[in-house]
Structures are given as structure tokens and as C-alpha cells.
């Protein structure tokens, strides 16, 4: 079985304000992951149970996008800023 860790994150805009309803997709991970898109909640938050290792997440909303590279397990909350 894969060792997984819940990763919690938040999508924010250029002014650091949360972006509810933004989409989050996994661009790269240590194992193949499918083409589903998570939806950020009312506080811009999301959670994903990823295998340990390095991954890259991408957030999108209304033509803006941002990406972060994360090593799982990650301490604290991941922030993805849209530009």
C-alpha cells in the first residue's frame, strides 16, 4: 500500500484573499494521478490525500492560474496564489 498524507491548502488571489470555487489539479506526483479537479471551499481551502514524495499542484480560476511544488508530507498549509 502507498503511504499517504493529507495535504491541506488554500487558493488565494494576488491580494492574498481566498478564492472560493477555484479548481485545483495535480500536475505531477510520485505516482500517476487521474484528471479530476478539486473545488476549493468557501474559504478557498482544499484537501488531498497524496502519496509521499514530490508533487506539483495547479490552481485555476477565471483565467488566472498558479502552481506550487510540494514535498509530501508538508508541514502546515500549502498556499497557491493565482496570477
Amino acid at each position: 500500500m502507498t503511504t499517504r498524507r493529507w495535504l491541506r491548502g488554500v487558493v488565494v488571489d494576488g491580494a492574498d484573499a481566498p478564492v472560493p470555487g477555484a479548481y485545483v489539479v495535480v500536475v505531477e506526483a510520485s505516482v500517476p494521478l487521474p484528471e479530476i479537479a478539486l473545488v476549493a471551499d468557501a474559504q478557498g481551502g482544499f484537501a488531498i490525500n497524496l502519496p509521499e514524495g514530490t508533487c506539483r499542484l495547479r490552481a485555476e480560476d477565471a483565467g488566472r492560474a498558479g502552481e506550487v511544488e510540494v514535498t509530501v508530507p508538508a508541514p502546515g498549509e500549502v498556499r497557491i496564489q493565482l496570477r
Binding site: 479530476i36 478539486l38 473545488v39 476549493a40 471551499d41 484537501a47 488531498i48
Partner: peptide, 27 residues
């Protein structure tokens, strides 16, 4: 948790999709 995906009808009440859209350890 929220997510979006795609499905398609194969009958009046039956919508086929990817397995991970309904069951996923990751999501």
C-alpha cells in the same frame, strides 16, 4: 470536499464515469 468530473449515460438511470470520480483514496 468538492470535485468535478464527467460522466455519460448508458441507460435511463445509469451514468458511467471514472472510478476515481466516485471512489478514491486520493480525493
Amino acid at each position: 470536499t468538492g470535485a468535478i468530473g464527467t460522466g455519460w449515460f448508458i441507460g435511463p438511470r445509469t451514468v458511467v464515469t471514472a472510478g476515481h470520480c466516485v471512489f478514491s483514496q486520493t480525493f
